[in-house]
């Protein structure tokens, strides 16, 4: 018991005395996660919509991303290593690849799940394609789309820890160092903020989801 309390106090003291290193790690961790998520959204939302509308695209693209999903996060990071070397960029690429499948698949499902009669009614009333997209399809697909982004966000924040293995920086650095030095307090300096971030993003996205699904309650 004594030991555990000490470990937390040591972790706290480490953060205080090395606040610049801690803040730098936080900055890298957050920015790499946010960039990976944003790039994945920009690529996968339009791609998911396209898959939902063009039947012939569905199988090849969904198949590709579904197989990507099976590869463990660490494996993706390690596979990138010989191709792109170490640092921020390869870590970002690896994380983006990880973030893609949930967003793509949920966008596809969100758009496929819209009753065709709703679209027929909308165009029958004289809405153009773009207006249907903006006023009908996007809002109706939004709940699933957001839950895809939420899954990706949590996954990316957790996996960004592994980015430290290929020199990407972030909270993972503390964990690797802590493991190497056999120092539990340092491990905690990395692990606790990551857990907290993951939980916060889960809560944040759930809140947005609740807002857009108000009509279902």
């Amino acid at each position: 018991m004594e030991l555990r309390v000490n470990v937390f106090r040591e972790a706290y003291e480490y953060v205080i005395t090395n606040s610049d290193r801690f803040l730098e790690a936080a900055k890298v961790h957050l920015s790499i996660s946010v960039y990976a998520l944003l790039i994945a959204i920009v690529i996968c939302v339009p791609l998911g919509i396209l898959c939902a509308k063009k039947q012939w695209l569905t199988d090849p693209i969904m198949g590709l991303f579904n197989s990507l999903r099976v590869i463990p996060s660490l494996a993706v990071l390690v596979i990138i290593l010989p191709i792109m070397g170490t640092g921020f960029a390869p870590a970002l690429v690896a994380l983006t690849i990880l973030a893609c499948p949930p967003i793509l698949i949920n966008t596809y499902m969100g758009f496929r799940g819209i009753e065709p009669a709703i679209i027929e009614a909308a165009s029958g009333l004289g809405m153009g394609e773009r207006m249907i997209m903006r006023k009908i399809e996007l809002p109706l697909a939004a709940p699933l789309l957001l839950s895809g982004i939420k899954t990706s966000a949590v996954e990316v924040i957790a996996s960004a820890t592994l980015a430290a293995f290929i020199g990407g920086g972030g909270f993972g650095t503390f964990i690797i160092n802590g493991l190497g030095m056999y120092k539990f307090s340092l491990l905690l300096v990395g692990a606790l903020p990551v857990a907290l971030l993951a939980i916060l993003s889960e809560i944040g996205f759930s809140g947005i989801e609740r807002l857009v699904t108000k009509y279902q309650r």
């Binding site: 009753e115 029958g124 009333l125 809405m127 009908i136």
Partner: peptide
């Protein structure tokens, strides 16, 4: 689109917009 706005259209499955209120639906 202009043609369709001048012709009312009602289908069996109704096709109301589930995320909009009744008045928003009618106001389309």
């Amino acid at each position: 689109t202009e043609l369709r706005r001048s012709i009312g259209y009602v289908i069996q499955q109704v096709g109301l917009f589930p995320h909009l209120t009744i008045e928003q639906n009618i106001a389309t």
